[in-house]
Design a protein around this nucleic acid. Structure first.
Lengths: 155, 155
DNA sequence: GCAAATCCCATGATATCCCATCGCATCCCA
DNA sequence: TGGGATGCGATGGGATATCATGGGATTTGC
């Protein structure tokens, strides 16, 4: 499923207009189209002030994973399903490559006029530019910690 | 069976009018039509004040799952089957996309004027808006717990 | 015959679509 | 190597269609 799917990469800038629209960067759009996604799926991150965005590959594989369980007698499964699927919206991409972000998502991520798209492989995130600048170095610092605690010879 | 079936996603607001009607959100209607369901199946949740709604895919797969057991000598199976199939009604969707909710279902979920549709993959739930707002954070908290205890490398 | 449910049409708000303009990067040619 | 032309990508605003919702008319069952 994941094999052959190209990753979202780079950190790119974008802007939110008065109508709450953002233009999805062209490279990301091409990847979404390659997943035959009718738009882009977006949900609030449940640990950070950011939006998690992805295409059909991620959504469908998550969905099918959950669908292996009984639909009515699997409470833990319901919690996971809820945290992702209930919080996710399908945003239609128009011909000029833009989506209308619902107010709830704008609020969750605290988006102002300038936003940052962050490529994360299977998914990408959308941050308010200033907030992201603040966490960028923290992330790199954590990555260094992981490297330094990695066991020699580990994969 | 599930492959290719798109999940119910998002949480959407709706309203219950004086006649006991609710408008099924357009995206959900399209999914139901794609399941060739003539309307929508609904039953009271047996663990929460909410309604469980779904299409033919869930009904049929649940049915087939239960049908693997002995029809007369599997009491636990009978209880599960009863809790779902006996409590389920098929609600007709009219041309404007609305269903008439039976009073028993309205009462079970304690529905007031504003209701919330909660996408849960194969099924969706209907909640009274205020009640749902109260349980939303509990659900997200449980999902975080699940994530934090997840084994590294798990899908 | 009366109550209740179903069907149908009308309205308003919202979101979607479309067109025109602008800025920028690339490409080509001198 | 520098300057100009071209095309793609991003942005702003206005027109259009879709959806949700309310009320009224007609039929059905008791």
């Amino acid at each position: 499923m994941i094999a052959g799917v190209r990753p979202f990469i780079s950190t790119l800038a974008g802007s939110l207009d008065k109508k709450g629209r953002v233009c999805i960067p062209a490279p990301y759009r091409q990847l979404l189209i390659a997943q035959s996604t009718e738009g882009v799926y977006a949900c609030p991150s449940f640990s950070e002030p950011a939006l998690e965005c992805f295409g059909d590959v991620v959504l469908q594989s998550f969905h099918e994973q959950q669908a292996k369980e009984d639909p009515f007698f699997a409470p833990a499964n319901d919690d996971k399903t809820f945290a992702i699927l209930a919080m996710t919206q399908l945003l239609a991409i128009d011909e000029t490559g833009r989506v209308r972000l619902p107010d709830s998502l704008i609020e969750h991520a605290g988006l102002k006029e300038t936003v940052t798209f962050v490529g994360m492989g299977r998914k990408f995130q959308v941050w308010d530019q200033e907030r992201f600048a603040a966490v960028l170095n923290e992330r790199l610092a954590r990555a260094r910690t992981i490297r330094d605690t990695q066991k020699p010879g580990a994969p």
